[in-house]
Design a protein around this nucleic acid. Sequence first.
RNA 1: GGGGGAAUGUCCCGAGCGGCAAAGGGGGCGGACUGUAAAUCCGCUGGCUAAGCCUUCGUAGGUUCGAGUCCUACUUCCCCCA
Length: 420
Amino acid sequence: MTNEFTPKSDFLHVLLERGFVHQCSDFPGLDEKALQGGLAAYIGFDCTAPSLHVGSLLPIMLLSWLQRTGGKPLPLMGGGTTRVGDPSGKDESRKLLSVEQINLNKESIRKIFERFLKFDDAPNDALMLDNADWLAGLNYIEFLRDVGRHFSVNRMLTMDSVKMRLDREHELSFIEFNYMCLQAYDFVEVNRRYGAVLQMGGSDQWGNIVTGLDLGRRMGSPQLYALTSPLLTTSSGAKMGKTAAGAVWLNADMLSPYDYWQYWRNTEDADVIRFLKLFTFLQIEEITRLSRLQGAEINEAKKTLATEATALIHGRDAAEKAEETARTTFEQGTLSLTLPTITIESSEITAGLGVLNAFVKAGLVASTGEARRQIKSGGLRINDEIITDERRIINEKDFTDSGIAKLSLGKKKHLLLQLK
RNA sequence: GGGGGAAUGUCCCGAGCGGCAAAGGGGGCGGACUGUAAAUCCGCUGGCUAAGCCUUCGUAGGUUCGAGUCCUACUUCCCCCA
């Protein structure tokens, strides 16, 4: 895919070297553009949830590298398109969200970008866009006349995202079918308004991006370019970004820095180097050095990955604190007071709180039923002591003088109860 | 417009003679082995005030001691004919 081509621009050089590139519509052409400086590129982001998750991290890194190599990053909030729903890769139609919900999500997501990009007034400072700005007020008739006539339904039917739905005999509603038209139009509009000539995205967006490129040609935009990043899976094939607790969110109020650190710490051996290149800004030389580690030494690389990745979104302090918490908890096996903590009224203890409910309250298990099952297989511990009696009551003696007790699920998930 | 199929445990796929909390996978979680890894093996994978009780098989009714299973209507999807 990227064979033979040797980029002259820093931007493509870094991207290729670090494994960010899956496909590009025109390597030499884009390379040339990047060399000229001031390359403006955008990536669209959904507003379907109040936080982005690790799956979105890769595109964010792309934008950040763009800025670091002199380009102008334009993160685009899908405030408009989220109202429609992207059919790509999904059999089920998405639930439509309310406009209010979308706006709330948008605000919440926006904060993440500020950790990765510099937003200001310099020429290559980032600019946050929202396609609702031009999509929400679209006039249907005008849109059909000016834009719609350039779309070939014949061609759209051959696109993978659509074909899959048709082949598998799944419903594809008109509103979803229009998604790609809107996204294509975005490209033209972002180019017209902000001069972006490049759209990036995950490999599943290739079809949508190329459709935009095509529309641009028909509507007289300058030459546009497409670049996609590989779909992220772990070496054992699992999709990235899922854990027991659900998605790996980037917002601290949805996933603590400690848990985020743990997510990266638990990376499979085979993925560490790839992830270091993609999700940290460490020098390639440093990563190469880490890649020579063997066997259990790889754990060092994992810690580096975890700390660097955590520092990017939660700050260096929080990352180092998470690392230290992990060291005390896992390597020394002692009680770390900086583990994620939930507070509990002391009256609840006096009233007699059973272990089952305590674990549910802590969020380590979803129900008392699950707690029972975990106890049967020896998965629950309080202060490192395996719970064998599901009717065990937690009492004052379980707490330290300062009112702390540690609950654990399995060997990895720990949490503190703090008496109030 | 006519005819024939299909919807199952709210993660997914999928079996299911009128006695069903419902086979089997995948995924996930826990245990063993390790290095907080992978692979492998074992167990679990509706809820609860738990040897009992409650709620699940597209929706609403009906037959029956008893319905995922039979009947009726409705919804959605698929196939064939026009």
